[in-house]
């Protein structure tokens, strides 16, 4: 495997391989000196055309713990402002001799397009509403820490599925590992067609919660209410928010997840996010180790992943 553009690039075996390798990087991250020389001499560029805190810092931490050199590219202070095209920008950066580009862009397919232009490895760090594969990998890893396997687990993905690249990548990864996924959302926040998605769909969160092993809450993007997709955020919270009352419906060992950033009080009640069932900070911690595994597999191991 040369690039990581979609969860589908990995397949079930590839996901398992990444998760197995992540164990080693969790151990590295737990040491007093959490750094190995594995990617010494490799240069990784962050090409972020869209805002990000946790994903960029997580990748940055991962790269530094592997001893890679990193370069930051910020759209607002670059020649993009002067009208340079994406292709010219990418080819200019590659001419400096880099090994990987980690790309986030508001348009779906940009990482794939870049991978057609360059020899460097390309990692998709989120493209439009399309995919966010490293998020899905860290979610799988986090679930596996609590439960031995995803096989047969009932996972409810709740909220704005339509605009969520996390939901798309998670559905692909969770189902590849044998989980049963149910999407829970108002019809206006579902994609126009779910044909070919191996999922169940409902709008009744209360019916899903008691038998769910995992509840995955998506961020409610506040700007969406101006698009007349929702009457109000309060109504959203009343019907699809994981409130304190609703959290009582959960099984004792159910897991509550969120990709961040959270809107406490909208899709998740403030106190629910701090319950022992919530693994939201573990997700962030595991993100670093999972991204170390991805960068190592692409740049270091030379291992051929099964596609």
């Amino acid at each position: 495997m040369k690039h990581l553009l979609s969860v589908n690039d990995l397949g079930a075996d590839g996901i398992e391989e990444v998760l197995r390798l992540t164990d080693s990087f969790v151990e590295v991250s737990a040491r007093s000196i959490p750094k190995v020389p594995a990617l010494r001499g490799k240069t990784i560029v962050w090409l972020f055309y869209e805002d990000s805190t946790r994903t960029r810092l997580s990748f940055e931490t991962a790269a530094k713990r592997l001893s890679a050199d990193t370069m930051n590219f910020s759209v607002s202070t670059s020649s993009v402002k002067k009208g340079e095209s994406l292709r010219d920008t990418v080819e200019t950066i590659e001419a400096m001799g880099i090994d990987a580009l980690v790309v986030r862009h508001a348009s779906a397919g940009v990482p794939w397009q870049i991978s057609q232009w360059v020899d460097a490895a390309v990692v998709n760090a989120g493209d439009g509403w399309h995919e966010h594969p490293t998020q899905a990998l860290l979610d799988c890893y986090t679930i596996r820490q609590r439960r031995q396997s995803l096989h047969g687990l009932r996972i409810a993905i709740v909220g704005d599925v339509k605009h969520s690249r996390v939901a798309r990548s998670d559905v692909l990864a969770f189902t590849a590992l044998g989980a049963e996924v149910t999407l829970v959302a108002p019809p206006t926040l579902l994609p126009p067609s779910l044909e070919g998605w191996p999922v169940d769909v409902t709008s009744d969160l209360d019916a899903v919660l008691p038998k769910a092993d995992v509840v995955y809450l998506l961020r409610m993007q506040k700007e969406r209410q101006h698009e007349s997709l929702l009457p109000s955020l309060r109504e959203y919270t009343a019907l699809w928010g994981l409130t304190r009352d609703r959290a009582r419906l959960l099984a004792d060992d159910a897991i509550v997840m969120h990709p961040g950033p959270m809107n406490r009080g909208v899709e998740i009640a403030a106190e629910v996010a701090d319950l022992p069932n919530a693994v939201i900070t573990q997700q962030v911690a595991n993100g670093v180790a999972v991204r170390m595994a991805v960068l190592y597999l692409l740049l270091g191991s030379g291992a051929e992943l099964v596609a």
């Binding site: 391989e17 390798l21 080693s24 590295v28 190995v36 020389p37 594995a38 990617l39 592997l66 190592y296 597999l297 740049l299 270091g300 191991s301 030379g302 291992a303 051929e304």
Partner: peptide
């Protein structure tokens, strides 16, 4: 594995 000097020269996974 992560300390080897032949990383990138052959498949190396711990």
């Amino acid at each position: 594995t992560f300390y080897r000097d032949d990383i990138g020269l052959r498949p190396l996974v711990p």
